[in-house]
Amino acid sequence: MASTTSGDVLPSGGRIFTSVPDVFFIPEFVFGGLVWILVASTRVVPENPLGWVMFVSVFCFVGTTLWFFIFLCGANQSSIWPSLDVGFHFLAVVFFLSASVDLAYITYLNGLLILVPEQLKNYRLDIAAVVMSYVATLLYFLHAIFSAIRWKSA
């Protein structure tokens, strides 16, 4: 039976760039950051659902950044880290999926009210944010699945 306290349960240092679930860190940064940027660059109407989208994108961006540096520095070698890895990425999937649905619905409603070309520009930015949000959701989902497989095999 494999011990979860051994040093090869979770990769650390440069090995995170070659292990299957951890290669998703960089794309999660990129697409999560794009959601944050695209939503922040448009006129926020209505505020409440898009506020949730901003919270989720900032929370997941900061959380993934901290997670990445913990893995990069090698501070993830305790037996609790594989389950924390699965838990964080599952939470990120649930958050991002709810934010993606909210963003898609608000974008759809805003598309029904396009009257001037400036609104069309915001609508196109919102469409791009919806696409990036669903891609980020998929990346976090894949990371959660592969982390769960790694956790169960350890």
Rank of each mutant, 00 (worst) to 15 (best):
N110D: 14
P11F: 05
G74T: 02
V53I: 04
F29G: 11
Q77G: 03
V58E: 06
M54V: 07
N122V: 07
V135N: 03
G33Y: 07
I114D: 05
S12T: 08
P82K: 00
L91R: 01
R124C: 12
V23A: 02
F146P: 02
F31G: 10
V130L: 10
I80N: 05
V116P: 03
F141T: 15
I114T: 07
Y108A: 09
F24E: 04
E118I: 09
L112A: 08
D22I: 04
K152D: 13
V56R: 01
Q119H: 10
H89T: 00
P27F: 09
D102F: 06
A104C: 11
C60W: 05
R15P: 02
P82R: 00
L142A: 13
D126Y: 10
T137W: 01
I80T: 04
G7M: 14
S153A: 13
F96C: 09
A104E: 09
T4R: 13
L125Q: 15
L115W: 05
L38W: 14
A40R: 13
V45M: 11
L113I: 10
A136Y: 04
I70F: 01
F146N: 06
D85V: 01
P117L: 08
I16E: 05
M132V: 07
I26S: 04
S133Y: 13
F59Q: 03
L97I: 13
F29I: 14
L91H: 03
S19K: 14
Y134K: 01
T42Q: 14
D126F: 15
F71M: 00
V53S: 05
D126V: 06
L72A: 00
